[in-house]
């Protein structure tokens, strides 16, 4: 009797321990360094809320992220994957389908992002849309008094020799695809793109390669408008530079980051809780104040202060509808674009 009692206590204790173990898991997150998930206050708040602790590992390129997933199966519970790579990770069996019923905030994600075909291959959610941003262009508001509505302002004779550009073949081709009214992910008329870019060459003053370049060249008057990234533009504006980010009628190039759960994760429930917290408006509003990309969660975007960049520019549903989200680019196309771009640069000398 006594022995049985002892046994049952032991069994009970084990059950309690196992339950506690399930509740207080340690989840491992794989992400870019300094990209939201590893904010100290956020990790702390999540721990207080759910009892789960969070450990981070980082990657410096998409290829490195895929390599880490391939070589360490089961080592991670949450991974950030750009939507252009989600399909590849799914095909290689690196990530698992996510049961979104445990993610309360999932219903608030803007529909076009939640069901983005790259994140939801075959109708199953492999990536939960988290953040997004745009590659469009920005103007110096002192030099360009009226905000242009068309991307064709880059070809305006008036701005000859006052245009900045990024020396990037893929971006250049996609910009010209927008300007010629094409789908950036399925460029049918590459000759039109080439002709358009050839006409652009004399307009360009110089190439910029970093955010710092962009701000300096703009401030020195080297160019009055140039392609720019939404997050960088927000930072330039916050610095007090006379900059306005423009999303023209033709649209803009969008990128979308999703959170996925790797195959072999031992803490799927905790991982889903973490993803839920990451798309929570409460988390996002605080992150946005420190400089964040746009959120995929419509409710979170609506909760932002009225004057915030992500609300006025990217929170506008009409603007979001114009965005063409970037899909994976085949090696073949990448090579063809580079060749086209180099030839144009060489011939314009």
């Amino acid at each position: 009797m006594k022995r049985e009692f002892g046994l049952s206590i032991a069994a009970g204790l084990t059950a309690v321990l196992v339950a506690a173990g399930a509740q207080a898991a340690e989840i491992r997150v794989l992400n870019w360094n300094g990209y939201g998930t590893d904010l100290e206050w956020a990790v702390k708040a999540f721990e207080e809320k759910t009892g789960n602790s969070v450990v981070h590992d980082y990657f410096n390129s998409e290829q490195e992220m895929l390599t880490k997933l391939r070589t360490n199966p089961g080592a991670y519970d949450v991974v950030l994957i750009n939507s252009a790579f989600t399909g590849q990770a799914e095909k290689e069996g690196l990530i698992q389908a996510i049961d979104t019923s445990g993610i309360a905030n999932f219903a608030d994600i803007a529909p076009n992002m939640a069901t983005n075909p790259d994140l939801v291959p075959g109708g199953e959610v492999y990536g939960v849309a988290w953040t997004w941003g745009l590659t469009s262009f920005a103007i110096n508001t002192d030099a360009v008094p009226t905000t242009p509505t068309s991307i064709n302002v880059f070809w305006d004779e008036q701005y000859k020799g006052k245009i900045g550009w990024r020396d990037d073949a893929l971006e250049s081709v996609q910009f010209a695809a927008l300007a010629t009214g094409q789908d950036i992910n399925d460029i049918k008329d590459l000759d039109a793109v080439k002709a358009k870019l050839a006409a652009l060459m004399p307009q360009i003053k110089t190439f910029w390669s970093s955010e710092n370049d962009w701000n300096q060249f703009m401030a020195a008057g080297d160019f009055v408008m140039a392609p720019y990234w939404s997050g960088s533009a927000a930072r330039s504006i916050a610095k007090g530079l006379p900059v306005e980010f423009v999303v023209p009628d033709e649209g803009a190039i969008g990128w979308l980051d999703g959170l996925s759960i790797p195959t072999g994760s031992k803490n799927v429930d905790a991982a889903r809780a973490f993803i839920n917290y990451m798309i929570d408006p409460e988390f996002y509003v605080r992150w946005e104040a420190e400089g964040a990309p746009a959120t995929a969660n419509a409710k979170a975007a609506a909760a932002l202060p009225d004057d915030s960049f992500n609300r006025t520019v990217l929170g506008n549903a009409e603007i979001v509808a114009r965005v063409q989200f970037m899909q994976p680019v085949s090696e073949e196309n990448r090579k063809a674009y580079l060749e086209l771009w180099q030839e144009l640069k060489a011939n314009s000398q």
Binding site: A169, K205, F207, L338, Q342, K345, A346
Partner: peptide, 19 residues
């Protein structure tokens, strides 16, 4: 060189570091 700065060396560099 900015836009006028495309030379044989920069094309080689592109092949190594960009693509």
């Amino acid at each position: 060189g900015g836009r006028a700065g495309t030379f044989f060396g920069t094309v080689i560099e592109d092949q190594f570091v960009a693509v």
